[in-house]
């Protein structure tokens, strides 16, 4: 979430004052090169392939099996009526592990990876302040989150529509909405999930500033995510649940009611913003004062 930006607005640029970039807090050129780096990494491309494979796998499996009432991931039994349930079922499945893992990989590379390769030093010689570098890194993580979700949704939508067609979508409330508004609901779901992953990216960015081992940062963020899921499933500590980042992630189903139910979505977004602000500031406090030795 971009909520971290206004808070950082008091911090001055340390770059030479002559050139004023198009956005003061985001170096477009740096962001472009960062995104090119992320997109160019072979492991990231493989990761996207895996993300895209899951909805295709789900769609083909449901197509091949006989339609039956069964327990399974949410929305799975609705797929046959509308292809758009394929991306929703896939998001529900991948939100537990694969999507956070993708963010963890990106976050691990963001600072710790550069430090490990020794390129962080050179990056800091670029006339861009550390704060701006960090903001750019976070912006690339947010774009990465959106990217990952978009790949899942697009692959799922293509596979789903090809195999199951574009019938009216059945909402959880038992009403049917047209394909056009169903597309909008799926877009809203994607944005909501991307917001949650972007908040997770802020946590990852902070962890990434703590270490020079990208793998350590990735593993640490996965541990954070899995611990959050575990804590969220223990009813005895229900007082903690509203404070957990993942608590409202699965609430994306509320957007599929008629009318959409916004309470949990709003709560989830507030938690996302809070995590992004706190961990963004932590990352800033750590990174701006950090000695870069490698």
């Amino acid at each position: 979430m971009s909520a971290a930006e206004p808070v950082l607005a008091d911090v001055p640029e340390r770059g030479p004052g002559g050139r004023v970039p198009p956005s003061r807090w985001l170096s477009a050129r740096l962001l472009r090169s960062e995104l090119r780096l992320i997109a160019g990494r072979r492991r990231n491309q493989m990761g996207l392939l895996v993300l895209a494979a899951v909805p295709v796998l789900i769609a083909v499996a449901v197509r091949l099996s006989s339609p039956r009432e069964g327990r399974g991931p949410d929305f799975l039994s609705s797929i046959t009526s509308n292809g758009l349930f394929v991306p929703l079922a896939a998001l529900g499945v991948e939100l537990g592990l694969f999507l956070p893992l993708a963010i963890a990989m990106l976050a691990g590379d963001a600072v710790a990876g550069e430090a490990n390769l020794g390129t962080l030093r050179y990056l800091l010689t670029v006339p861009v302040g550390r704060t701006r570098l960090l903001v750019t890194k976070y912006a690339s993580l947010m774009i990465g989150a959106l990217w990952g979700v978009a790949v899942v949704v697009l692959a799922g939508a293509i596979a789903g529509i090809a195999l199951f067609g574009t019938g009216p979508m059945l909402t959880l409330s038992g009403t049917e909405i047209s394909f056009g508004s169903a597309v909008w609901r799926v877009v809203l779901v994607s944005l909501y999930i991307a917001a949650g992953l972007a908040a997770l990216g802020a946590v990852g960015l902070f962890i990434s500033t703590l270490t020079e081992q990208p793998l350590a940062a990735t593993v640490a963020l996965m541990i954070f995510t899995i611990l959050s899921w575990i804590a969220d499933s223990v009813p005895q500590i229900s007082w903690l649940h509203p404070w957990l980042l993942v608590d409202q992630w699965m609430a994306f189903g509320d957007l599929l009611r008629d009318p959409p139910f916004w309470d949990n979505i709003a709560r989830g977004l507030w938690v996302d913003v809070a995590y992004a602000v706190v961990f963004g500031l932590l990352a800033w406090a750590r990174f701006a004062g950090k000695d870069i030795t490698s």
Partner: peptide, 29 residues
């Protein structure tokens, strides 16, 4: 009346002479 569950919903809808009970979990009315 709609009971909001996580990714499920049960509705009781009364409209005139009709009362519908809807359950999204097993898609039954």
């Amino acid at each position: 009346l709609a009971l909001v569950g996580s990714n499920g919903e049960s509705d009781v809808i009364h409209n005139g002479t009709d009362v519908w009970l809807w359950s999204s979990a097993d898609k039954s009315a």
